[in-house]
Nucleic acid binder design. Structure first.
Lengths: 247, 247
DNA sequence: CAGTGGTCTAGACCACTGA
DNA sequence: CAGTGGTCTAGACCACTGA
């Protein structure tokens, strides 16, 4: 039975952990305890291979994932280092508003203030990647949860990406859901700030012109082509973005 | 020369791309074009191995990374599927305020309103994981950029994690930087909302009590132990959170 | 030059699923 | 049972870095 390649695995692996997670956890706890502080050189792949008696692919995976998590910086030809944590990246989950409201067991209602074709200003044209003064789609929709206005969605759309945008029934499907259908893969740039609403927004949301709002401005791009630019205004008293992060 | 193991690599790989990125890009563009819509079964590892003439490790890596990016859902024994994109996770970068200001070439100034020991209320004690009515540290610091108040930082700290917190000179080092030193690895939960400041915050920030503020509440945990709870109030006119995401 | 990480291969054993 | 993904090994070639 000399050539039988292990019928019984030689590695039960502590508490169900796969070898690569054992290596990862070891490095992680060294970072958490301060054994390596930012800038310190971590053990090389070869050292970890010896120490854990695993293959290089396995320690490579552990280190690669720590790099993806921002905990480790790796430089080819030089080594792996404990990352500087002054920048911590967090994961923010942006859900479609309709889904969010329905998930709470509430009723979602969309009121279309207008949805029309418009000549783009120079700035808007640049942001949407269309010629200046060409036509773009512009919609203004108020979303309510159980009758309470929750978001004022002012959106411009690149007609090349969604030629039928104006024919969509936004009481049935949100612009976000529709646009995800015509262009499923997105990248986006966004900013979040607190500000007072415009007079029109205040009226649509049923709030005062001085009431603080959480405003998200988001520009969405699919395969290099700008799709849409949205200004989402939420009454501060009714809206919160929350999330979690691990550094 | 029969047994020579390729002196000349047989795979120049289009435009410098590694094989795993070619597989990844192929799948990604199929998702972007709508060739697979959410819920569709993607090609199996075995099929991709054949199609690209690469090893299973290689297609495995491509699929694993797409899963980590939230584009693909994989189920052992069943298959890989195009993910539902209604939840899109974005990366939000939270930088230390000091670094951010210095990076702009400006001057950062911290004014310590107070830093003291305090009896925790029941709710606070629960959040920090300490016994009710035990002592916690409480600091209130205003951060300014070139003399303009930018953030009011109201922070509670678990004394077990940072016993010397009150002795720190916060004009030299921010609480964030100090706490990163004593507990280098973090997890956090946070929420972001728009609201009016308290009267004290308005006064410290030099703004009106009705001016909208962007308020971040963040609870930080290290290895399961709560470290600190912070309420960060920013005048909406001076502060913006921005970021980017790829779904 | 030795050491480092980046990546790949061709096989393997395994757990899990659903017919 | 066949098909799926989860993971591992022991080797390999390569590009890059810094002495």
């Amino acid at each position: 039975m000399a050539s039988t390649p292990h019928t019984h695995s030689p590695k039960p692996a502590a508490s169900g952990h796969a070898p690569y997670t054992r290596v990862k956890d070891f490095l992680k706890s060294g970072l958490a305890s301060g054994h390596w502080v930012p800038g310190d050189q971590m053990p090389s792949e070869a050292e970890l291979v010896q120490q854990f008696a695993v293959s290089r692919m396995t320690v490579g995976r552990a280190l690669r994932e720590l790099q993806a998590e921002g905990l480790v910086t790796r430089v080819q030809g030089v080594g792996s280092f404990a990352a500087h944590l002054s920048r911590v990246s967090s994961t923010l989950t942006i859900r479609d508003l309709h889904d969010e409201i329905v998930a709470r067991g509430h009723q979602h209602q969309a009121t279309v203030v207008f949805a029309k074709k418009e000549k783009a200003t120079a700035e808007l044209a640049a942001q949407l990647g269309v010629p200046a003064r060409s036509a773009v789609f512009h919609s203004l929709i108020v979303h309510s949860e159980n009758g309470v206005p929750l978001q004022c969605e002012d959106r411009y759309v690149n007609p090349a990406c969604a030629p039928d945008y104006l024919a969509v029934d936004f009481q049935t499907i949100t612009p976000t859901q529709y646009l995800l259908g015509v262009a499923p893969l997105w990248e986006a740039q966004y900013s979040i700030e607190a500000a007072a609403p415009t007079a029109q927004e205040a009226q649509l949301l049923g709030i005062g012109v001085q009431d603080p709002c959480l405003i998200v401005v988001r520009r969405t791009i699919n395969r290099g082509v700008p799709i849409t630019l949205a200004r989402l205004v939420h009454p501060g008293t009714h809206y919160q973005i929350s999330g979690a992060f691990k550094p």
